[in-house]
Amino acid sequence: MLRIACPWCGERDEAEFRYRGDASVQRPAADAGLDAFFASVFERDNPKGWHREWWQHAQGCRRFIKVVRHTVTHEIAAIGKPEDDPAVPE
């Protein structure tokens, strides 16, 4: 069980949040090829290490946040608002 610092509400238990997907996925431009679109819809990396994620404070302010989490240690390196671009450690 993690502690996640919501940028709006402060530190809360993981149980208040829901994971909402890979935040590194970018929607390709409208004229991008089919392969790029396919990849953005269906293909996800399963990295061992740092991972940018969308989380939602579902049982709190209901807002979406970006979280940089380590998939092995669960360590959280950075948390940002949707418009932020939290840095991923080396």
Partner: peptide, 12 residues
């Protein structure tokens, strides 16, 4: 409701 919230955020 959740998905609309997400898209409003995403698309600004």
């Amino acid at each position: 409701y959740r998905e609309l919230q997400r898209l409003i955020t995403m698309w600004g």
